[in-house]
Write a protein that binds this DNA or RNA. Sequence first.
DNA 1: TTAAATAGGACTATTTTAAACCTATTACCC
DNA 2: GGGTAATAGGTTTAAAATAGTCCTATTTAA
Lengths: 137, 137
Amino acid sequence: MLQVSRKFEYGLHAVTYLATKGLGRVVTVKEMADEMGFSQEFLSKAMQSLKRAGIAASVQGVKGGYRLGKAPEEITVADIAIAIEGEPHLVRCGVKADRCEIFSSCHHRGYMNILQHKIQALLDETTIHTLLKEIER
Amino acid sequence: MLQVSRKFEYGLHAVTYLATKGLGRVVTVKEMADEMGFSQEFLSKAMQSLKRAGIAASVQGVKGGYRLGKAPEEITVADIAIAIEGEPHLVRCGVKADRCEIFSSCHHRGYMNILQHKIQALLDETTIHTLLKEIER
DNA sequence: TTAAATAGGACTATTTTAAACCTATTACCC
DNA sequence: GGGTAATAGGTTTAAAATAGTCCTATTTAA
Ligand code: SF4
Ligand code: SF4
């Protein structure tokens, strides 16, 4: 169905939240989950992924929480997708060749790989900064 | 994971097969499944979808089978994707608004829709004709 | 020392995809 | 007309991916 995952959407919402309402402070997962209306536990997983990728930074302990790990100009939608879903694989042979039983006789692999890179480039051309400007309008 | 479905890949292989080895005749699902090495029953479903969309045409009965329903220049990768997977919905609110519980407070819906149309445009810019030329090289 | 937070492993439930199964219909050919 | 090889398509089952929960450990401010 070629649909983005829920976790990615949660992550994208969280990043824009941090970039607008989280300036100069750390924001708890609880606050974000309450404010945006989704599962605290699940959002927590998304935040952990974003943190590992350096998109978010965390402070542990009481009064802890998350803030952005980079400037909004330096975070692209692709960065968030990769942080949360891992490297993209439009076709299963991208994950591992033996995941496709017709690998050796496949003729459209080249095209599929080009397509994947084009989609990736689309995700890469929008930063959180530009996304926020579009939202404001 | 943003991966295309198996059924779509089967369909794309079948269309290129018909466009190269199916000239001036009808090809059975059995032949294509044997030749390309995948499930006859499953490919059959893909062919039925392609037929409904007019991409393939069928002849029933003994000596029946499939041939292309349009010229390779007139079939785009997007046509095949839509025939097999239905209208694309990068986000779940595209299917139906109430499939997303945060619909009313979502700020990135607009961007996601633009993104979807850009991806769709990418799929639309490659016809089977141009795809085959790329494969030949 | 308590409490509120992140970190992360393990598990469960739900949904989607892939595939198989089965029956009907069509039409060639003897 | 009857047998057979094909498409047409509905229903069911199996496998995989996604979504979400649960639980425990660790960190740190107060
Ligand atoms: S069909 Fe081709 S492109 Fe698709 S997974 Fe198999 S080898 Fe890769
Ligand atoms: S989060 Fe926004 S874009 Fe995604 S499904 Fe919900 S309303 Fe649509």
